[in-house]
């Protein structure tokens, strides 16, 4: 399968602290990759660099062959113009831990905003598409509700619909179930599973080990700003090669 995302020597610093210390990895078309690791291991930062929510100091990220965020010309590295970065951000979709729905817009309005402003769709067409994706996440009857009138699980599903409707090449999920009550986790994971079944390429940062095990084609274990271990979920969870991962799995919810 063709490579969709390629990350080479990624370094990220927050002031003096180096959070990513040289990450190399690639994701093929249609792959579902889970990133696990303890907090502070750099997994969320890695995800946020992929759509330039975080700048990074060194390394390259290539999405479908296109360099994300920076240009290197005459040996000098330059941040791309803001407009270009905005366009590139829309190539990936992102769902956040805190949903981040726009509270002043209805569920449909949330999904439509990017379609109208970024994709320059006509309002009516955008509305139709929004309804289509809301139906897809099981919320067709909630299209006119405002985020404040929806449960956490419903909000997160709207947020996923908002991202997916942009038809991104790659979906990023940043601990999307961590802020949810346990009984609402299932409905969100079900939506993600459905997207995986459709062949959507996805990267998930997650604490749900059982889910990562079930849905992923590959798992990456981040440890101290580098990739500690990666492989298929069976080998990773059942027979970890490194002591670090074994230790992490012991303290995590997977058993």
């Amino acid at each position: 399968m063709s490579v969709l995302l390629e990350i080479q020597g990624l370094h990220k610093r927050f002031d003096a602290t180096e959070v990513l210390k040289g990450v190399d990895c690639s994701v093929a078309q249609g792959e579902v990759v889970s990133i696990i690791g303890s907090s502070g291991s750099g997994k969320t930062t890695l995800l946020r660099c992929i759509n330039m929510l975080e700048d990074f100091q060194d390394g390259r990220i290539l999405l479908d062959g296109e360099e994300i965020g920076y240009d290197t010309r005459d040996g000098r590295r330059r941040r791309k113009p803001e407009r270009e970065i905005a366009r590139q951000r829309a190539l990936t979709g992102m769902a956040f831990q805190q949903f981040n729905l726009f509270p002043h817009l209805t569920a449909a309005g949330n999904v439509m905003l990017g379609l109208i402003k970024t994709k320059r769709m006509a309002k009516e067409a955008a509305h139709q598409l929004a309804l289509h994706w809301l139906e897809r996440v099981g919320l067709a009857d909630r299209a006119d509700r405002y985020p404040g009138q929806l449960s956490g699980g419903q909000q997160q599903r709207v947020a996923i619909a908002r991202a997916i409707a942009m038809q991104p090449k790659l979906m990023l999920f940043d601990e999307v179930t961590s802020a949810l009550d346990p009984e609402l986790v299932g409905e969100v994971l079900q939506v993600i599973k459905g997207l995986a079944a459709d062949g959507m390429t996805m990267i998930l940062v997650t604490h749900e080990m059982r889910f990562a095990f079930e849905v992923s084609s590959r798992v990456i274990f981040m440890n101290g700003g580098v990739i500690g271990e990666e492989g298929d979920p069976k080998t990773m969870f059942v027979a970890p090669k490194t002591e670090r991962l074994a230790e992490f799995l012991k303290t995590s919810s997977f058993n």
Binding site: N51, M52, L53, E82, R83, A86, R87, R89, A90, T92, G93, M94, F96, Q98, N100, L101, F102, L113, G114, K117, T118, K119, A159, R162, A163, M166
Partner: peptide, 21 residues
Amino acid sequence: PKGQREAAMAIGLTFPQTFVW
């Protein structure tokens, strides 16, 4: 919340668009 700006950025809005909408 900071997440509002990030969510707007993630769907490809530029800063002026994010501010207005």
